[in-house]
Design a protein around this nucleic acid. Structure first.
Lengths: 217, 217
DNA sequence: GATAAATTAAGTCAGGTGATTGACTTAGAG
DNA sequence: CTCTAAGTCAATCACCTGACTTAATTTATC
């Protein structure tokens, strides 16, 4: 079982080809604007049904792309999490939240398409659920939430949930913006993914620690 | 010429019917997942080409929807702007930025679809440009930017641009989240649009005033 | 009232879509 | 070497799409 057979190598190469082609087309033209046929062709598969064979429906393909990246993001997050264990500094936990995704994008090299893909999927009424399922299963994310809770014990639960959503939106869409700018050769506010993560971290820390104006409840 | 003729009334009623139906379908099922045919039918037009007749392509329809709301948002913004003129309190300018959209959604009554529509359009690679064109032409937005600049003169231009983007994403996507929750009868962190705007304002103020960690530039 | 123009209705068209099918190719077990 | 099963290819299906054409309806103006 140790050595993959030639056959298995080829199949997994084909799958990878499809995943990469789909990710690029989805990011550039829109997930729903691209047909499975176009993906198959872009992946060099003469078969117009290659996507259907290997993945099933388009939602399944989207899930496969998300999962592929999530694995790598998760491992980066686990590494950062090890360094933050026990910390009472909000910044440490925010870094665990912010850096994994951007660091992953940096590792992918240029150009990337994953951030734009994520931004689309997360705003689509039907695909959104897929993304939530794939990302919320992460146990390390739960640890980060708990770490932040310990740093900010007096923050109301509602506000905590609200600001968690905000952080998620900020990370995903700012990464997508930067990715788009890189693809278009448009100037970016930050020179590198690492610097972008720093700028994002500054803001997310401020966000979590912001005073809460009481509302007429 | 003063009184609208019966004919003009009917036409504009039909256009409004189409705009409303499109907005709802787009928000619920996705802009690209809904065909012009389905919009025409949902608007009660026997003609499957009603959208084409009144608006042209789907991009034109999207633009018309955006513009319709933008007019109202703009008037609310102008009102708030009058009260903030000359202020050196970041909060005043942030309110000018945050409240108009959410207040507009509150005025629309329940249910609304505009926020989800915006979130989708702003993340789509081809429709995004339409939204930018429609919203960035607002002169009042420029005034808010200048007001914030006067409050935060030492903030680097790059960081200013970066945080402007962040505020935009936060407003649009948090509004969409809340709208979705209301539509699904899911609990929301805030009881009203006004309270949601307060929570958003707390965060956006903290964001603009957050210290900037120097990067190795 | 009659007429011309604009709106709505209804039908048609070529093209693209997902899904299914069967034939062909190839790796690996007996 | 042969056989089997998985992967690939190519063709086909019914369906939906946007665009177009034609007819019916309605209204403003003469």
């Amino acid at each position: 079982m140790a050595g993959r057979t030639v056959r298995e190598e080829q199949v997994s190469a084909t799958r990878e080809l499809i995943l990469t082609a789909a990710e690029r087309l989805f990011a550039e033209r829109g997930v729903l604007a691209v047909s499975n046929r176009q993906v198959s062709e872009a992946a060099g598969q003469g078969n117009n049904a290659a996507v259907g064979y290997h993945f099933g429906t388009k939602a399944d393909l989207v899930r496969a792309i998300a999962r592929k990246h999530q694995v790598r993001v998760e491992s980066i997050r686990a590494r950062l999490l090890a360094g933050a264990r026990g910390s009472t500094d909000v910044r440490d936990w925010v870094d665990c939240l912010v850096r994994p995704v951007l660091e992953h994008l940096a590792e992918l090299g240029s150009p990337t398409w994953f951030a734009r893909f994520c931004a689309q999927v997360m705003t689509d009424p039907v695909l959104q659920q897929i993304m939530v399922e794939e990302s919320m299963t992460s146990p390390s994310l739960q640890q980060i939430v708990e770490g932040l809770n310990r740093c900010l014990p007096e923050l109301p639960a509602d506000v905590r949930a609200e600001r968690g959503e905000m952080a998620r939106h900020l990370i995903v869409h700012m990464a997508a913006d930067r990715e788009r700018a890189l693809a278009d050769n448009t100037p970016t506010p930050r020179a590198s993914w690492h610097d972008a993560a720093t700028g994002l971290g500054d803001v997310v820390v401020a966000m979590w620690t912001a005073p809460v104006t009481p509302t007429g409840a």
